[in-house]
Design a protein around this nucleic acid. Structure first.
Lengths: 242, 242
DNA sequence: ACTCCCTGTTATCGGTGTTATCGCCGGAAC
DNA sequence: GTTCCGGCGATAACACCGATAACAGGGAGT
């Protein structure tokens, strides 16, 4: 057993491997993350990875934990004041951080979400755990209208699906309000007191009208296109209520 | 060029390969679906797969289309009466079929959902298309309170996330009501309480829309004014009736 | 000094997606 | 009828990949 330089050297090379792997994953895609490429990028031999992480799964688990930890650290230092707000605001904050993280690390998120079997990754389990505590606070405050477990699963499913849907869309065509819309949808079905959904008649009329714009007579194609664009912008505007 | 037996033989061996691959995928897991294993199971040589499908991605695309087609065929023959119900019931029916399909084909679903890049598979695109038509019917009936595109994405994200959340849970611990709860959550955020326009003709919708143009958010006054002017012109155009 | 245990290094195994190459056969064209 | 050619079956091969065995060296602990 080494005494003084042990942890230093071990953790140093370990962190180097994780950093190299995460950089490779972010810049070259998930297909480029191979044991040989990571070993070469980190300046170590291939079997070292197996000595330190046991498995390639262990490697990507370590990468996920590292990237996620640095991300939430950067986020929490900026806005750590939100730690002791009301439970609903905390939940919304966590939701937004989750979606931002997914959009900021597409390959890693796809890698974690695409795990068919073998259980969730440690990083995913950790995320679920912090979500569980937030939902528990909601339940303790008497704000939940449904089972705590169901609320947890609904938020998780909605968040995961939202990130995947956004990632599957080209960045220019993404709906910036989709995340908040999904959160409001789940929240209003979860919470006991409905947060006063705005009067939807104006939006409903606009949406219905959008479907008949192509059939409007007496307009040029350019006018119809412009009208459709304006309608879309108005309906997806963050102030989408009166 | 072969004339008579061409399509017969080609499609026969093609279907055999697809059937073998789908059986292998369902019974042995996605890791067992390898070109050599599929070729041996189908009684053909490995390069035949590349001659018929071009790529392994092409193979799994064909498998997805085949499995999905047989599934929806089996479902639609049993309950094809639901084809011409009200739009909301149709949407709910499609939602349930989607979730049932995902739970009935876990490996295939994980394979399709786990695609990070390269765009969605043809089968996924087809599913999105049928969902789009259903959402469009909702919008045309004046039942949507949000943008049609946003409604589409919300339903898609919620459905995908729900299936993935259920698949990640051991079958004994799954919440049987999660699917319906998620659907109700999204639906109540999507739907307008009552049809916005009782008369679905183009002119009626346009007239109703003209009354709410001043309340549209996210637009400039000039855009609102131009829209009002175009509406007036369209409604007074000689072709203004259908 | 001796013995471990860890590390670095090389070589290797089994497997995967993919492609090249070589006969071969059967319809097409003259 | 003969020749040609395009696709097909089959084998082998290529370039990787994850994972591991085997062995040399060197510092730590006794």
């Amino acid at each position: 057993m080494v005494a003084a330089q042990d942890t230093s050297s071990r953790d140093e090379v370990r962190l180097g491997i994780v950093a190299a792997a995460s950089r490779l994953l972010r810049e070259e895609g998930s297909n480029a993350v191979t044991t040989r490429a990571v070993a070469q990028a980190a300046g170590v031999q291939a079997p070292t990875i197996y000595r330190l992480f046991g498995d390639k799964n262990g490697l990507i688990d370590a990468v996920a934990e590292h990237v996620m930890a640095t991300y939430v650290a950067a986020k929490s230092t900026v806005v750590h004041a939100a730690a002791e707000g009301d439970p609903v605001a905390d939940l919304r904050f966590g939701w937004r951080v989750h979606i931002e993280f997914g959009l900021a690390n597409p390959e890693l998120y796809a890698l974690l979400a695409g795990r068919g079997a073998g259980g969730p990754s440690p990083a995913t389990a950790a995320g679920m755990e912090v979500l569980r505590t937030r939902v528990r606070r909601l339940a303790a405050a008497g704000l939940l209208a449904v089972d705590e477990q169901r609320a947890l699963m609904m938020i998780h499913a909605a968040g995961n699906g939202t990130v995947l849907a956004l990632l599957a869309t080209p960045p220019q065509k993404r709906d910036p309000g989709l995340g908040d819309a999904m959160f409001d949808a789940v929240l209003s079905s979860i919470l006991a007191s409905a947060p006063a959904t705005p009067d939807p008649t104006v939006n409903a009329v606009a949406v219905t009208f959008a479907t008949v714009v192509p059939d409007l007579p007496g307009l040029t194609d350019a006018e119809r296109a412009l009208m459709t664009e304006w309608l879309h912008r108005s309906l997806t505007s963050p102030h989408g209520n009166a």
